[in-house]
């Protein structure tokens, strides 16, 4: 695929809850980027529940991620061309056993290999939920995107996801067993250490061990999840994105970027039913929403209220 680009970005798409439109969003953002002339690699990292190929309207490819992870095939051999300009795919493993739980070294090998693939943007479509695999991929990505629907269960799980990712990040960083212990304790909201929020946790750690505390604080500053709202039906729904932003800032002490929303539209289920990605057609309201999201992700921007 030619020479390496100097800068490659990895976006990971996660969600606390399944069925909120992760794969749908990842696919369409990939297509939009492809149409703009960016080389994009979609990776189906929903280990165990892979179906990104279906979103793209192609049959399950022969080569897939498990060939790389379990059979040591070179990453190049697992990449397939899609019918869409500038978009490539690594399909998820179809074998049920084993792949759902790759070892840490296998994950690292995958990330390293992805760095070497000659594309500009890698989009990782993660499984739903807060499993370690999902969180680890979400955390190593340059940008983690959370897909949320404006409804209680989805919002709740989105917070749970952010919280799990955040504590996972802190636990991985904390080498001091005492600090690690405190982080684990704090992850339970009813802990007896009286720590209610991550912001308070970091304050506590600073008191115990200023160097580690500072490190955690810096690490949290760099952790900046993005939110995309899917299936919005009203202006009030859109405001939930901004409200979640404010809530995260107050509760987690985290900056969260609200990068875009997708309106509820019959076109969406039609596109899913017919396995024809929406963005392939170009034009229309939803296409512009995908463009906005892609643009905001690439340029580190976000929506502005009103």
């Amino acid at each position: 695929m030619g020479q390496l680009f100097d800068h490659k970005e990895i976006f990971a798409f996660g969600s606390g809850k399944g069925g909120v439109g992760k794969s749908f969003l990842a696919t369409n953002v990939a297509l939009v980027l492809g149409r703009k002339g960016r080389k994009v690699l979609l990776v189906d990292a929903d280990l165990g529940g892979a179906n990104l190929h279906t979103c793209l309207g192609i049959p399950a490819p022969e080569a897939n991620l498990s060939d790389f992870i379990h059979h040591n095939r070179p990453i190049q051999d697992t990449i397939i061309r899609t019918p869409f300009e500038n978009v490539w795919l690594i399909s998820g493993g179809q074998d049920i056993l084993g792949i759902a739980n790759p070892k840490h070294t296998q994950k690292m090998r995958l990330l390293k290999a992805l760095q070497e693939v000659d594309v500009e943007v890698v989009l990782l479509d993660l499984g739903a939920g807060t499993g370690h695999n999902t969180l680890d991929f979400f955390l190593v990505a340059d940008k983690g995107v959370m897909v949320v629907m404006p409804e209680p269960t989805s919002v709740e799980n989105a917070y749970r996801f952010i919280k799990s990712a955040l504590y996972r990040r802190l636990i991985v960083l904390a080498s001091d067993p005492a600090v690690r212990d405190l982080v684990e304790k704090a992850s339970d909201r009813r802990n007896d250490a009286g720590i209610r929020t991550p912001a308070e946790l970091v304050e506590q750690v600073v008191k115990m061990d200023p160097t580690t505390g500072q490190m955690l604080r810096d690490s949290l500053k760099q952790f900046r999840p993005r939110i995309v709202l899917n299936q919005v039906r009203s202006l009030a729904d859109i405001r939930i994105g901004f409200a979640m932003q404010a809530a995260c800032q107050k509760y987690f002490g985290l900056e969260v970027d609200f990068v875009g929303y997708l309106e509820n539209d019959d076109q969406v289920w039609r596109s899913i039913r017919t396995r024809q990605p929406l963005a392939a057609m170009g034009g229309g309201k939803l296409f512009r929403s995908f463009e906005t999201i892609a643009f905001n992700l690439l340029s580190n921007q976000q929506l502005k209220p009103e």
Partner: peptide
């Protein structure tokens, strides 16, 4: 946002 029971904050 911080009215009680708002979707973004109740949890």
């Amino acid at each position: 946002t911080f009215e009680s029971n708002s979707l973004a904050t109740y949890s």
